[in-house]
């Protein structure tokens, strides 16, 4: 007996979740920031962000289906981090890296925040 490991499985599952997100299928929370709305799956958010883990693990928020983030959060940073959660790819460029870093800190995604720090240092 043995185990057959499908090496593509994790990526294929994540791709399907990203397709569901883009078609707004089975999404269960709307994130609002600076007048913009982003639909997502709580399970993915909780799996990837300490902030969302704290929010949705709180029994009082059990039925929360919409959440407004601090107005100082940059929607472009949030959009990049949502794409990262659903694709494992983090798009970094000089113009958005600070917004991405600040949003990663806000969302308690310290590994991504560390990567943003290293990117900033490497550019100077």
């Amino acid at each position: 007996d043995g185990c057959i490991q499908f090496t593509r499985h994790a990526g294929d599952v994540l791709l399907n979740f990203n397709r569901l997100r883009s078609r707004n299928i089975l999404t269960d929370v709307t994130i609002q920031v600076d007048g913009q709305q982003f639909h997502a799956h709580k399970a993915i958010l909780v799996a990837c962000s300490g902030f969302f883990y704290s929010v949705f693990m709180d029994p009082e928020n059990a039925n929360l289906s919409a959440i407004s983030l601090d107005p100082k959060v940059d929607p472009k940073g949030l959009s990049l981090l949502l794409d990262f959660m659903y694709t494992s790819c983090l798009n970094l460029n000089d113009s958005l890296v600070l917004a991405t870093l600040n949003t990663a800190i806000y969302l308690q995604m310290e590994h991504v925040a560390d990567t943003c720090h290293r990117f900033i240092k490497s550019r100077h």
Binding site: G2, I4, N16, L20
Partner: peptide, 21 residues
């Protein structure tokens, strides 16, 4: 799965959800 023979399968494992209907 330590100690169990693991065979790697490189092909697709599940269906792909299309971009649109």
């Amino acid at each position: 799965h330590e100690g169990v023979n693991t065979i790697k399968e490189m092909g697709r494992s599940i269906h792909e959800i299309p971009r649109q209907d």
